[in-house]
Amino acid sequence: MEQPPEFVDSDHPSYVCRLRKEIYGLKKAPRAWYTKSKSYLLNLEFINSLADTSLFILRRGKTYVYLLVYVDDILVIGNDKSSICNILQLLADRFSVKDPEDLNYFLGIEAHRTDKGLHLSQRKYILDFLHRHNMLNAKPVATPMASSPKLTLQSGLALPDGKEYRQLVGSLQYLSFTRPDISFTVNRLSQFMHRPTQEHWQAAKRILGYLAGITTHGIFFSAKNDHTLQAFSDADWAGDTHDYISTNAYIVYMGTNLVSWTAKKQKSVARSSTEAEYRAVANTSAELCWISNLLTELGIPLRVVPLIYCDNVGATFLCANPIFHSRIKHIALDYHFVRGQIQQGLLRASHVHTKDQLADALTKLFPRTHFLHLRNKIGVLPAPPS
């Protein structure tokens, strides 16, 4: 920053202005804004969520107002329109805010509402980076990654400058918020950030070709839904031939709506498929605990204990009973908290057949027909007609 010319003191040219409040663009500005907005909202009797510090909840009898803050973007929803309008007016009286409008676009995510429910997509975001990489007229492909040859760290010649590759994969990571069908591929490509090659670059551009054909697809939340949590947990044991570390994944549904998913490599090598799957179940149960706590704060009680589906019999039994004790002594104690959750009646674990394991979509590559089947099963669909 430089001193504005009209404020320069000719007698003391080295003097500068003292900032009495944070200027937009400084590193400390977002935190200062959050602190100021938080204190004001707490004065309005909002409660700051423990599960998500960006969420504020106002409860008055049976009336709820939820306010989500992301830097200077604010989302306000609730079950009473007059209460929402009152909160918006109070915010406008205290801060300089734009005129409120219905939710259509938030943080790069487009919201399309119909009588049947809410559809979230990132169509404009996709079109923007397709244009940036000259892929708007790319020939569409049916899958985001080719089943062969398998990408490795040594595949192909190293790129002279990996900056563009890292930018593209970073953009795809944000896109996976509404596109779980590309989660596995993005996770795989993210493992080559430090040494991208020509083959990795071509694989990243293939995702653009895949997206070019289905830019309007996204996640649909049905207006008619029940409050039950169920998750599918899976692990690809020693799937990485470079370091033999497993990739675990989970998909969490609330009723029929997909609400959370991830695909991530584990921290260490698993000595058996049961160990790899058990670690995946532990990560899934941690996510279910967080979602349950969040729903409790939102005033949405769960009448049915959350359920985890796992396609490994040994891992399923291990969740409830300390079997094979001699084989699991080396597993860290933090993975065993899932057993405590089950014994306390806060969680259930059940076996599911491999062909019904939806989390497979995030851990493995499949032929075209099976991939399209899984994509539809997890709910990556175009927006319904108005």
Rank of each mutant, 00 (worst) to 15 (best):
Glu6Cys: 10
Phe7Lys: 11
Phe7Pro: 08
Pro13Ala: 15
Ser14Pro: 09
Ser39Pro: 03
Tyr40Ser: 10
Leu42Ala: 04
Phe46Met: 06
Ile47Trp: 00
Asp52Tyr: 06
Leu58Gly: 03
Gly61Gln: 02
Lys62Pro: 05
Tyr66Ala: 07
Tyr66Ser: 05
Leu68Lys: 02
Ser82Tyr: 10
Ile84Gln: 02
Asn86Ser: 14
Asp93Ala: 11
Asp99Gly: 13
Pro100Val: 09
Asn104Cys: 09
His112Gln: 13
Arg123Ala: 14
Phe129Leu: 09
Met135Trp: 05
Ala138Trp: 04
Ala158Leu: 10
Tyr165Gln: 00
Tyr165Met: 01
Gln167Gly: 00
Leu168Asp: 01
Tyr174Cys: 03
Phe177Asp: 01
Arg179Ser: 07
Asp181Val: 08
Ile182Arg: 04
Ile182Met: 05
Pro196Ser: 03
Ala203Arg: 02
Ala204Ile: 01
Lys205Asp: 00
Arg206Val: 05
Leu208Ala: 03
Tyr210Gln: 04
Gln230Cys: 12
Asp236Ala: 12
Trp237Arg: 07
His242Ser: 15
Tyr253Thr: 09
Gly255Pro: 13
Asn257Val: 08
Leu258Ala: 05
Val259Ser: 04
Thr262Gln: 14
Lys265Ala: 12
Gln266Arg: 14
Gln266Val: 15
Val269Gln: 10
Val269Glu: 07
Ser272Ala: 07
Ser273Ala: 07
Asn283Thr: 13
Ala286Arg: 07
Ile300Trp: 01
Ile300His: 05
Tyr309Val: 04
Asp311Ile: 04
Phe317Cys: 15
Cys319His: 07
Ala320Asp: 13
Ala332Ile: 04
Asp334Asn: 13
Gly340Leu: 03
Gln341Lys: 06
Gln343Glu: 12
Ser350Val: 13
Ala359Pro: 06
Asp360Ile: 11
Lys364Val: 15
Leu372Asp: 14
Ala383Gly: 12
